[in-house]
Design a protein around this nucleic acid. Structure first.
Length: 123
RNA sequence: UCAGACGGCCGGGCGGUCGCGGGCCUUCGGGCUCGAGGAAAGUCCGGGCUCCACGACGACAUGGCGGUGGGUAACGCCCACCGGGGGUGACCCCAGGGAUAGCGCCACAGAGAGCAGACCGCCUUCGCUUCGGCGAAGGUAAGGGUGAAAGGGUGCGGUAAGAGCGCACCGGGCGUCUGGUGACAGAGGCCGCAUGGCAAGCCCCGCCAGGAGCAAGACCGAAUAGGGAUCCCGCGCACUCGCGAGCCUUUGGGCGCAAGAGGGCAGGGCCGUCGCCGGUCCAGGGAUCCGGGUAGGUCGCGAGAACCGGUCGGCAACGAUCGGUCCAGAGGAAUGACCGUCACGCUCUCUCUUCGCGAGGGGAGGGGGCGGACAGAACCCGGCUUACAGGCCGUCUGAUCUU
């Protein structure tokens, strides 16, 4: 979007996903978002997606990940914090939720997580 | 035209706008190119490949398979044929080896269920009789009844009544001949026929299987901790313990190098800005190299039992041969969304036309709305099984109509 927006990479390793599983999370609508401050100095934003077998077969899971990827592509440059790893997890309604509502879910979860992180840092 | 049998195929097309994964190029802006299925699925069989084990052999156990002949790398798959069963038919179905190697089982009913058996009956003789029959002895297995199954079936003869008791046909058993590679089939002969079913209960026979799996396996290999080798620096003092090469000896014992342990002093490192001083750590410190190996990375990883077309052989499965094509490969895992249009299905509505007295039905055209399944490669092939909106093609069968 702008020059200031951080570079975005994908999470690929199981260990990185497990590390994020311990981090603070926020459930909104059809998704759960986990955010973990890596603690290094890189301004990088990384993101991973999880759709378990509860969502459905391979076709449904791929579709769920596609929708979440597209949402991340649209929202992360604006709402993600540098130096943080995100994992977005699909919940039940992710396939049927209207696109605008799904965007809303992810956006409000990102904002909420950033606010919480700022609150714990200040004191 | 209707009903049905079998086989094969498609799984929306085109254009545009945003996107996704691999490869190549790049002036780092981007560009070019390729990118899921018939089942990619279930992971049920068979292989390739890899490692482990191993005498390359045999036996046993366990598991699987089971008509015959072919096909194949192989199969539990496929093709053709045989036998049995079903259907008017096209066709469909069958774990379809062995029951005189042995063991076991055959419930209920029934008189009797594996060895034969006599309930109701039938017949003869004798006795009794109220002349309806009853009882006893014997002969029968035709009829009734039970059952999934009653130890050949039907008919004629025969008989007191019956019975393969006799005969004919059918069925069965045992040789013979003929046809076939074979499973089997056919012909004719002999035997009156004596001894059923379940092997999907155990079992016997024949055949096939060493085990694990791409998280196989091969290579590279950080940080940290730890192992080994070499070199350099340091390894000082006294005490105590300790061990005992050795020495002394009056044989009781005594002295005790070096290695080791303990704390102390000295020493060194670090911290408090240097020193003094204090704290803390160390008995070693440093350098180089080697090996194992974790995270991670690379390979394995796609030109093959490949696909398309032709010719030849074969009833076929399939094989041989010629020509052409290159066709996903990554990991937390890529193909989608939207718009337009065309084709398709359902539905609503309008117009025209046709059949009908009518309700309504058929056909053509215009407009609107809705819909498009099952499902996503994860080392790769050959099968099987299961799921699937809608649609297409071919061959054949049985009805019916027309000529």
């Amino acid at each position: 979007m702008t020059d200031a927006s951080p570079a975005i990479e994908r999470l690929r390793k199981r260990s990185e996903f497990l590390a994020c599983a311990q981090a603070p999370s926020c459930a909104k609508g059809a998704v759960v978002v986990q955010a973990r401050a890596r603690g290094d100095d890189l301004p990088l934003v990384r993101v991973g997606f999880t759709a378990t077998k509860r969502i459905g077969g391979a076709v449904e899971r791929n579709r769920a990940k596609r929708r979440m990827r597209e949402a991340a592509r649209a929202l992360l440059p604006q709402f993600a914090s540098p130096g943080v790893d995100y994992v977005i997890i699909a919940r039940g309604g992710v396939l049927t939720r209207p696109w605008a509502r799904l965007l809303d879910d992810v956006k409000s979860a990102l904002i909420r997580l950033a606010a919480d992180r700022a609150a714990t840092h200040i004191p």
